[in-house]
Design a protein around this nucleic acid. Structure first.
Lengths: 111, 111
DNA sequence: CATGTATATACCTGTAGAAGTATATTAAGG
DNA sequence: CCTTAATATACTTCTACAGGTATATACATG
């Protein structure tokens, strides 16, 4: 878990993940789009790979990188206990909508 | 966003947040429960406070700390674009279970 | 097999930040 | 007021890690 957050603390790495969320990319693609030196991209990818965020497949001299879901799921699960600090607001909204909804349904029946 | 993740990368800070998720605590409470030196707790609380994760109210010599939702919501929002990488899997799992379910129902009918 | 292309790694340097210790601040209570 | 309790801050040291530069590895193609 510490490793997961440490990895995400780096802006270039989050940028890489953002691009990969849109589509599979080679190192060169990322290098171009992010305007980062190639060794930097490779080093970040290594860290992302070792933390399970991405996975590479080899295609000739290229390595095509793509997202792996596990660490994201971990973060999502970690957030769970804290959701009650803002979800209640949403719940209230949902209850409100349900109420409005069921009222309009009742009104329809009465017609 | 970088600050947010940097703050969460520290295990003691996540431990503090965990305790605060359960209930409002004083510095001393946290010190006891986590077995950390008091200056360490205070320093982590400062960092958490400055990043908006917690908020203190003064009660005599005590400071009672509690969770603030904003940075957690930020993390939750950041996760959004990546949810499609595992939500589909859950969907697939559900479809699978549905299929198994309806198959066993069909088999029961055939008997 | 020589050359170019794509990616990875090694090494060095600078810096942010965590732990530990000592000390300052603020309020309570006799 | 003086003392104790609760918390914050200052200062030092150590370490992890990011950036930069140079170099190695691996594959493709003439």
């Amino acid at each position: 878990m510490s490793a997961t957050f440490t990895v995400l603390a780096e802006p270039s790495r989050r940028a890489i993940l953002s691009l990969l969320a849109a589509s599979e990319c080679s190192v060169g693609d990322l290098e171009q789009q992010l305007r980062l030196p190639q060794p930097s991209v490779s080093k970040h990818l290594r860290i992302l790979r070792e933390a399970g965020f991405v996975q590479a497949r080899v295609q000739a001299q290229r390595r095509l990188y793509r997202i792996r879901p596990e660490p994201f799921m971990e973060v999502d699960a970690w957030l769970a206990p804290f959701r009650r600090f803002w979800a209640p607001h949403l719940d209230a909204l949902e209850r409100h909508l349900d109420r409005v909804e069921s009222q309009s349904r009742r009104r329809r029946k009465q017609r």
